[in-house]
């Protein structure tokens, strides 16, 4: 499957990246997160316990299943308002 993965705020800055296209087979967002975090270095921010995620612009949990073409966002806890 091909996924559009995007990053925001502190994660975006740490990675120096707004997002990237990721190819692979991932049963859930958790598997995608583990795959990216194990790249090491700055990517370890994705291993933070309070990480939030969204699938196709909707908040979800890490066990959310994925299908080809999904947009997955990773970001630290939100701080608006």
């Amino acid at each position: 499957m091909k996924l559009n993965v995007v990053f925001f705020a502190r994660y975006r800055e740490a990675l120096g990246l707004d997002g990237e296209s990721v190819d692979g087979e991932f049963a859930s967002i958790e598997q995608l997160r583990a795959h990216l975090a194990q790249r090491g270095g700055a990517w370890q921010v994705l291993a933070e316990s309070n990480l939030m995620c969204a699938r196709n612009e909707e908040l979800c949990k890490l066990d959310e299943p994925l299908v080809d073409g999904d947009e997955v966002a990773f970001f630290p806890p939100v701080t608006g308002g």
């Binding site: 925001f8 705020a9 502190r10 800055e13 309070n50 969204a54 966002a73 970001f75 630290p76 806890p77 939100v78 701080t79 608006g80 308002g81």
Partner: peptide
């Protein structure tokens, strides 16, 4: 809601924590 605040301070910019 997906908003994030980054404050400018004398120590430099920093992201507000949840």
């Amino acid at each position: 809601a997906p908003f994030w605040k980054k404050e400018q301070t004398a120590d430099g910019p920093h992201w507000v924590e949840g």
